[in-house]
Amino acid sequence: MTVPEPYRLILYLAGILGFVGLNAAYLVWVERKGAGRFQRRPGPTEAGPAGLLQPIADALKLMSKQLLVPAGVDRTLFRVAPLLMMSPVLISLAVIPWSESLAARNINVGLLMIFAFGSINVMAVMLGGWSSRNKYAIISAARVVSQNVAYEIPMLLVIVTMIMVTGTMDLNEIVRQQEGFIWNWNIFRVWVNPLMPLTFLVFFTCMLAETNRAPFDMAEAESELVAGAYTEYSSMGFGVFFMAEYANILLGCALGTVLFLGGWQSPIGILPGVFWFLAKMYFLIFTVVWIRWTFPRTQFYGLLNLSWKILIPLSLFTLILTSAMMKLF
C-alpha cells in the first residue's frame, strides 16, 4: 500500500503525535504500577480495571488546573521552555525506522539528526529553570547542564564507535545490516569488538542520565529540590515537561533498539516486523522503570565521577579497540 508522498507525511505526523501521547500517558501508568509492584503494593486500582483509566483522569486533572505564571518570571522563556523540550523529540522520532517500510523520513544522516535535536533538550530545561526565578530551579538547571555535558561525551563516543562499525548514519541501513539470527545484532557482534555488550551498557547508562532518569535524576530530585526546574510550572506546563520526559525515554529506547538490538529484525531469522521492534523497545523501557525503582539516587559527585572516571575512559577504549580490530581483521 502506498500513499502519495505529502499525504503519507501528514499521516505519519498524526501517527507520531498519537503514539507519543498514548505512550506518555500509559508509561506513567506502567511506571506507577511497576513502582507499586516493586514495593509490594498494588499501585493504581480505582479508576477503571487495574487502574487503566488513571492516565486519562490525570490528564483531565492537569488540564483543568489553572495555568499559573508566577510574578517576576521571564514570561516568554517560561512559556517556551516546555515546548522546546517536547518538539525536538517529535522531530527526532520522524527518522526512527519502525519496520522495513515504516519510517516517516529516511535521511542518510538520521543518527546525527537525533543527536542534533537531542542537544536542544538541555537548553529547554535550563531556560525553564532560569526563567522561573526560583533558587531550586536554578540549582537544578546548573545540575542538568553539568550532567548532560558529562554524559554527552561517552554517549557520542559510543555513537562514533557504532558509526565506525556500521559505516553509515542511516538508521534503516544500520538495521538492515543486523539481519539474520540473534548473533548478527550489533550488541553480540563480538568479532568486531569484543566489548560490544559493554558498549551497549555505556550507551544505556548515558541514555538514563540524559533523560534525567533515576538513579541520575539530579534535575528533579524531589526530596532536595522540590521539583527542580519544573517547580514553578503548573497545569499542562508541567504536564508537557512530564510527557517530554517519557517521550525522551521512548526515543532513547527506540534508538538503543535500532543501534544494538537489531531494530525490526527477528532473533530467529524469520518473520521480521514492527512487533519485534516494539517488543524490544518496551523491554528496554521496562528496564528503565525497573532501574528507577530498584536503585537509590546517586550523589551528584558520584554521578560526575562515574562519567569522567569510568564511562569516558571505557568508551574511548572501546573506540580505539574497535578501530584497531577493524584495521587488523
Partner: peptide, 29 residues
C-alpha cells in the same frame, strides 16, 4: 543535511548551552 545537523549540534547544543550556563551563574537578577 550534514552541515545543517552539525550547525544545530554544535551551535545550539554546545555553544549556546555553554554560554547560557556561564551567564546563569554570573548574571545579576
Amino acid at each position: 543535511p550534514f552541515l545543517a545537523m552539525m550547525e544545530i549540534l554544535i551551535y545550539v547544543g554546545a555553544v549556546c548551552v555553554t554560554i547560557v550556563f556561564a551567564i546563569m551563574l554570573a548574571e545579576p537578577d
